[in-house]
Every structure is written in C-alpha cells, then in structure tokens.
Computed example of a mutant assay.
Amino acid sequence: MLETYCLFFRHMLCLEPKNRHAGSSMFPTQAFEDAIRDEITAAINDRPVPKAAWEPAVDSLVMIRVVLRVEEEFALNLPDDVMPAGGFDSVEHCVATLVETCRKLWGAHYPVSEEV
C-alpha cells in the first residue's frame, strides 16, 4: 500500500502544467487577456465583503489568484515584482502589465524559429 502511494505521489510531482499553447511560437495575447480577466472577475465575485472605495481595484489577494492561474495554464513562472505593492488601481492596468510581462517571458521560453 505504501509503495503504491509513493509511486502515485512521485508521479504527481513529475507532472508539468498543461500548456496547450506551447507548440506555437506566436504569443497568444487574447488567451492571456481572457485568463487574466476571468480570474480577476472570479476573485472579485468570491469576495465576502464589498471593497472599500480606497482599496485598489486589483489587490494582492486577487493578484495571487491571477498569477497562479497564468502560471498553471501557460507554464510560465512569473517574477515576484509582477505584483506591485498596493496593487493595481484598474483592471486594465493590471491586464496590460501582466500581458507585457508574459509576452517577454514567452519570447524567452518559446523563441521564434525561422525556417529557410
């Protein structure tokens, strides 16, 4: 029983995130934007208490969910500085910043290859 559990656990540790876009060197801008907006909306809707007027539109708790979603769905490791202190004042600024960061990381992980 223990051996079966250990084999299963070892298998789970070796699994990599699914990246259905990895075969393409083209950056899937719309897919990133959709995932980010979807996770922001879900996180905001999951809030038990309405936000105060002085709170940022996208705070650190929302950003953690967004970062985890992007990392899992697209197999990218986002840097810690993608989450600024104080959060983002608007959803649009958050989406634009994350998409630009992801575009740079994508280019490093999936370089465009030229065929002759």
Rank of each mutant, 00 (worst) to 15 (best):
M63D: 00
M26T: 10
V49F: 11
L7R: 15
A22W: 00
M26C: 07
S90T: 15
A43K: 02
S113K: 12
M1E: 07
E114I: 13
A96T: 06
E39V: 06
E16Q: 06
A75P: 02
E73A: 07
F74S: 06
R20V: 03
V62P: 00
V58W: 01
Q30A: 14
A22E: 01
Q30C: 03
V95P: 02
K104V: 03
A96Y: 08
L76T: 10
F9T: 08
D80E: 14
E92G: 07
W54M: 10
D59S: 02
P79L: 04
E100D: 14
A35C: 15
P111S: 08
G23H: 07
T97P: 02
C102N: 00
F8C: 08
F32Q: 04
A75E: 00
V116Y: 10
G86T: 10
E71P: 06
T4A: 15
A108L: 14
V116P: 12
A75V: 03
D81S: 08
E100N: 13
P84I: 10
S25E: 10
L7Y: 13
T101I: 10
D34M: 01
A22Y: 08
D81N: 11
G86E: 05
A42F: 02
R37M: 03
G87C: 01
C6R: 15
P84A: 08
L78F: 07
V49E: 07
K104M: 09
D81T: 11
W54Q: 12
K104H: 10
S25N: 13
A42R: 12
D34E: 13
